[in-house]
Design a protein around this nucleic acid. Structure first.
Lengths: 336, 336
DNA sequence: GTTAGCACTCTCTCTATGAGAGTGCTAAGT
DNA sequence: ACTTAGCACTCTCATAGAGAGAGTGCTAAC
């Protein structure tokens, strides 16, 4: 692949990113100052197609980038862009807040990323098998209420507000807190909901059953063992011609909202700091005309979850890469 | 409108609810045992059309119910159905949990209703001007963290987990809690975020700025003055032929996710216990082929918010009415 | 009041046609 | 040896016309 072919490939892809229409030799010659005629470009295009960088929808249509073409473009041809000052500020500002709730954080991050890029964004935090309970508090909360707060070593706090029977006094809650802290702290979160309460029962007496019930609603517990995932900006897809059929939209919806699918999508990123997956590389049937730009979220040393922008393969990779990278960096800084 | 015409209208609507296709006199005669010929039915249909209960998409098509037709059907012809035992159980079970968080409650309710009916469901709780702060607590939470818990007289609890500077000791938090409780309790929630802190400043000294910042992230405060709304089950719409064009889907998405629009939609219900809005009755441009079945959520005496199922006008009103009614009743029982 | 019959209307599907865009190949030019 | 003009060919898309199918409204007979 010589230099000229690279330039031609880049030109085809850039034009296709804008127009979403197959690119023909004529318009390519006219719009770019190659100093080459359409006929010469046709030869170049034929070579690029033969080598698999371009596809043709049908015999007499222009060329369209293939997965391999996009891949080459992203790896070698793309000029890494930096975000505008406003965008960078917007991202920094978002992480200046004091809030430290898992759900709030996820939603803010997804919304921010979708807002900046104009594509849907998804954040997922699988309940990490490694996450351990640091503290567990049960606090009186108005009449008949109690707050259950659980802090893990991932830096995020899970919490639930519960109602409790009237005959449970604040002192009882304090007792439960003491017992639970002693018995459960340091325990992997995944086990908390299933913990056998033999020890607890003796210590808690008549409240044992209540505690068991309370623990089961803890996020990450029985009722919410699915990973916590948030998708924002789905509606941006309505604007792209590649999703003008309902079936396409539906397939992407399915992909983005079914936790198992998103989970597979994002855990596939492993611990790469910044990764791009194009079309078939996603290895999801529904995703063959999608691309994903993702990053790994860390807390302390280990992998906390992933954040990604998902959009049509015809995506503004330069911009999205910069945005995802920046957001992940700010997140990691804020929680690291 | 004599009895026979009513029966004909009901038959047309029932058939249209199933098929989504205009109903012709021939099939109508064949499927229903009216003991009448197609020709006679044609006369009846012509009358019903003239009176505005039916429409014709074009001259030589069958009949389709009009808003007025659906309205008559819902008000007079519909046989109120009861939910199946399983459905009723499912709804009851959902409200047996001890959780009392606003967001959790909203999401559960919307998901439940959508799951039972097969249409999208939406729950909205506008920040009630009448809601007053009952208690406000600031509790230490792990290292560098604090939980801000605010209980209002609507029975739901708002809360945020925050990070705080390292030099703020638990004792400081206790002080803040005491001062804030004294100064703010009984205050309408809407004012809390804007409260002038003259009194507080004296009492809190160097922590005043911090407190001010914390209060601003309180739900219902500055950063979240929009009503809390949740939509679940949007994807059910993909299955209906009336939404097979992306523009339709997009319009409904817009309607359901823009808080101002949902707000208008649902506050339009006033305090009706159970209400049906059909097509143009919604008074929303995007909603002219939608219907809504909504109910009012109460807490104590006053209106807390609304819950609704939104779907195509061609909706299984009997089933949806029963489900919405039941869910609202359970909610009101759980929080009343 | 009900029904059969019939002309009429409108949509939907299928087919044919032509315009437009683009390709691949060949032969000539540099 | 590379580049370019020219041209035949292919494929899609938009348009128009024909015919089938479904349904209506009206009339006249029961």
């Amino acid at each position: 692949m010589d230099d000229r072919k690279s330039r031609v490939l880049a030109a085809v892809i850039n034009q296709y990113l804008e127009s979403a229409e197959p690119v023909g030799s004529r318009t390519l010659a006219r719009r770019n100052a190659f100093g080459l005629s359409a006929a010469t470009l046709r030869n170049e295009l034929a070579d690029l197609e033969e080598w698999g960088y371009l596809d043709k929808p049908h015999t007499s249509a222009g060329r369209v980038p293939s997965d391999k073409g996009y891949r080459y473009y992203v790896d070698r041809l793309l000029v890494r862009r930096t975000l505008s000052a406003q965008e960078a500020d917007r991202i920094r500002a978002a992480y200046r807040a004091h809030v430290r709730e898992a759900t709030w954080f996820l939603q803010q991050t997804a919304r921010l990323l979708s807002g900046v890029t104009g594509y849907p964004a998804v954040v997922i935090i699988p309940p990490p098998p490694t996450a351990r309970l640091l503290s567990l508090q049960l606090l009186p909360m108005g009449e008949g209420g109690a707050a259950l707060l659980a802090e893990t070593d991932t830096g995020l706090v899970a919490h639930r507000v519960l109602s409790i029977p009237a005959d449970v006094a604040p002192a009882d809650l304090a007792l439960m807190t003491a017992v639970l802290s002693r018995e459960l702290s340091g325990m992997p979160l995944a086990e908390v909901a299933h913990v056998h309460l033999a020890n607890l029962e003796r210590a808690l007496g008549r409240h044992a059953a209540l505690v068991e019930e309370l623990l089961s609603v803890l996020p990450g517990g029985d009722t919410e063992q699915a990973p916590v995932a948030t998708v924002e900006g789905f509606d941006t897809l309505f604007g792209f011609p590649e999703f003008h059929e309902v079936e396409r939209i539906r397939a992407v919806w399915e992909l983005l909202t079914r936790h198992t699918l998103v989970g597979r999508l994002l855990t596939g990123l492993g611990d790469e700091a910044l990764a791009v997956r194009i079309g078939e590389e996603l290895a999801e049937a529904a995703g063959h005309d999608l691309s994903l730009v993702g990053a790994t979220l860390r807390s302390g040393g280990h992998v906390l979850g992933h954040v990604a922008v998902v959009g049509p393969r015809r995506m503004d990779y330069g911009h999205v890469l910069a945005a995802v990278e920046q957001v992940a960096a700010e997140w990691n800084r804020a929680l690291g």
